[in-house]
Design a binder for these strands. Structure first.
Lengths: 211, 211
DNA sequence: GTCTATAACTCGATAGAC
DNA sequence: GTCTATCGAGTTATAGAC
């Protein structure tokens, strides 16, 4: 089972175009638009610079393709979970399960998206628009109704949503910090991330449990 | 009351060196090492490029100074809170209060640190070393003791720490996302961030409350 | 210390052979 | 389609006048 956010194209054709795209994705994710160099991408793909331009015309266009592909893959996941109308508890649990698992397989994607959003919020918005901005209304309403029925402790729905997302995403952004501060080795880190799903679920549901 | 993370130097001397440093800090935080241009820093400082080299020799050295200064200011805050031996509940509450307030005044610092850490973990570690890596042992032990005494629900102390930090930091990293997904305007965002301190405290303590 | 002018260099992009 | 060689724009860095 491979949850990696790879590319838009289906199948695993090992075309030159594909190899360039994958090399570019890795480098852009790691170093950002300005930090990435065409030479480095070419080296990683095992080709020369000229070919990058042959297939993608310019660095900017190549970056566009990569960014779009990553966003196209990540956003629908959020949308689907947030917009579905399954029961609240189930939805939250499913969201945590799926989201942590997804990031676990694509640990650098959140930083890429967060950086992109902060540096170029407008171009990001344009990329998101066509595939549809996640609409949290259903979720927010579900929370309010659950509160009215006394099923969960009162909390502003927006804060609940952010709390859940924070605990899913941030540990991956702060991975190097964890390493240093908690002085964990690779094995301990892996275990830590494997435990996360259950821990976050328990934490959230404990926080929501009414008196 | 000014909680901004400004510079290493005390006082507010308006020397050329100082103006360059502050301009550089603003630009580097906003655009990163590669995205920032010496010309832009010079413009912001109201000087010419040559002076940047006169005072700081190279772009790399200037960046080093800025990065070091930001880290030197942010880390001791974490250390002090984590390493103190005040009672657990008080410590957690104080941590949330202080941390959210601090980031609220320096909203771009977390992204800078997270990006830096991920791009150059080694150079980051070297910068942190001399001022002392925060040692969470006291905190971790306090949590374990509180669990044994039945004062709080069982949870791995490391996860609790990360949960708290996540909910404090991530909402600022994801600000543009909040804007889009929750479609908040500036006023609503401000209110949202003002509410955060109380919401996070309540959420954490509710999650920790034993059955 | 501060400025202008320019050297030196990096890197994206193109030309042209194969 | 793929390569080597090179151009040219944009940047960092320095020389030298004031």
């Amino acid at each position: 089972m491979d949850e990696s956010i790879k590319t838009d194209r289906l199948g695993a054709e090992d075309s030159t175009e594909q190899r360039i795209f994958e090399a570019a994705r890795d480098i852009f994710i790691q170093k950002g638009m300005e930090g990435a160099k065409m030479q480095e991408i070419a080296d990683r793909a095992g080709l020369n610079k000229a070919l990058l331009h042959y297939y993608y015309r310019s660095k900017e266009k190549l970056f566009e393709m990569v960014a779009r592909s990553i966003i196209n893959r990540a956003i629908p996941v959020i949308r689907k979970t947030i917009e579905s109308d399954e029961p609240l508890h189930q939805k939250i649990a499913g969201f945590i399960d799926f989201y942590i698992n997804l990031i676990n397989h694509n640990p650098f994607v959140p930083l890429f998206i967060v950086s992109e959003m902060n540096k170029h919020p407008d171009s990001f918005y344009e990329k998101i628009m066509p595939i549809g901005v996640p609409k949290p209304q259903i979720f927010l309403k579900q929370v309010e109704e659950a509160i009215e029925r006394g099923e969960i402790k009162p909390i502003k729905p927006e804060h609940l949503l952010i709390n859940v997302v924070s605990m899913c995403v941030f540990p991956f952004l702060g991975k190097p910090m964890l390493r240093i501060v908690l002085s964990m080795d690779s094995a301990e880190l892996k275990q830590f991330y494997d435990e996360r799903t259950e821990v976050v679920k328990q934490f959230v549901f404990a926080a929501l449990r009414p008196d």
